[in-house]
């Protein structure tokens, strides 16, 4: 199932499908390992809800919600819950 990376639940992983960022930030993300086809796992949200820490290619990177939402991932399980509910589930 396709979702924004920011909508992953805690502990859930997905495979990066596309990156919507442009310019410098796009390059930075690609440079630090957010590559298409790579597996990314959401580890935790910061105590105030934002940013979130992601495990990617052996390291942990924190991104703000806005920035994470511009990365699309494919999650493995098909659980049919709609994204709004998923978000409430983990916040």
């Amino acid at each position: 199932m396709l979702t924004a990376m920011s909508e992953l639940r805690k502990g859930e992983s997905g495979i990066i499908k596309s990156i919507e960022h442009v310019g410098n930030m796009r390059r930075r993300l690609i440079d630090i390992g957010f590559n298409v086809g790579e597996r990314v796992t959401l580890l935790a949200h910061a105590p105030l809800g934002e940013p979130s820490a992601f495990y990617i290619k052996g390291s942990v990177i924190a991104l703000r919600r806005n920035d994470a939402s511009l990365i699309t991932v494919i999650t493995e399980e098909e659980d049919g819950t709609d994204p709004k509910k998923r978000r409430q589930g983990h916040s």
């Binding site: 960022h21 930030m25 930075r28 993300l29 630090i32 940013p51 820490a53 390291s59 942990v60 990177i61 924190a62 991104l63 703000r64 806005n66 920035d67």
Partner: peptide
């Protein structure tokens, strides 16, 4: 606010 990445090292 612009985009940035923050690394959390081990």
């Amino acid at each position: 606010p612009s985009s940035f990445t923050l690394e959390l090292p081990p």
